[in-house]
Design a protein around this nucleic acid. Structure first.
Length: 210
DNA sequence: GCAATGATTTACT
DNA sequence: GTAAATCATTGCC
């Protein structure tokens, strides 16, 4: 059975690491919790992508600080929620110090708590295996809304935790990121991480390699 | 103030 | 496999 007492909220210091790629890898196997309207949902992180605002053209913050991206320039430990294509909410974890726009995009989760609620939020009869397999769908399943943008991840509405009983070692695979072809050479950076052979990883196919 | 576009998903051919 | 849905952010007038 799932025991909430086995989970420990990640401290502020976790997000202040100077290497966003390192944070992205550390996030694998951790858990995302949300408490929306008193309903708790949670999922294990199985896929992430690192974005670095200083030298990564794929990052929204690369072009500079704007009204939208200013959250990424905050100190680590806040949520950056962005509405993409007018439909989908993407959930990012901001890392590093204030002024350095690093963030980790959560691309896929494994539902572990409140799966009934997730099903309701996802509406139609999506198979269980698709509940949180994708950056837009996982946000919807967890009830993450853009109103949660800039939320403190150490708060009581949206936070990350680790399982104190979970094994420390994971099979981590690193590949190029998805959907950032426009970023040119930066799209080739192996900054996408996922747990090897995990069923909830959104297996991306296309790879226009020459 | 107005038009273009995107870190995606879903449905239809 | 291709195309549409849909809207906040962005850049230019």
């Amino acid at each position: 059975m799932f025991d909430l007492s086995s989970y420990e909220k990640l401290p502020q210091s976790f997000y202040n690491h100077s290497d966003v790629v390192h944070v992205a890898k550390e996030l694998l196997g951790k858990y995302v919790f949300t408490n929306i309207d008193g309903i708790i949902t949670a999922g294990k992180i199985v896929e992430t992508e690192a974005y670095c605002g200083r030298n990564d053209r794929a990052c929204h913050a690369y072009a500079g600080r704007t009204e939208r991206t200013r959250v990424m320039f905050e100190k680590g430990g806040v949520a950056y929620v962005y509405l993409c294509y007018g439909i989908h909410h993407l959930f990012n974890v901001v890392s590093n110090e204030e002024g350095l726009a690093d963030a980790v995009l959560i691309r896929a989760l494994e539902p572990v708590w409140g799966t009934e609620t997730m099903h309701i939020r996802r509406g139609s009869k999506v198979p269980f295996s698709k509940l949180t397999a994708g950056p837009g769908t996982l946000s919807k399943a967890l009830g993450i809304h853009k109103k949660h943008n800039a939320l403190d991840l150490c708060g009581d509405t949206l936070w990350l935790a680790r399982n104190i009983e979970a094994p420390a070692e994971l099979e981590i695979e690193a590949t190029t990121r998805v959907g950032v072809d426009y970023a040119g050479e930066d799209a080739l950076l192996p900054w996408r991480f996922y747990i090897r052979d995990h069923p909830f990883v959104s297996v991306k196919k296309k790879k226009s390699l020459t």
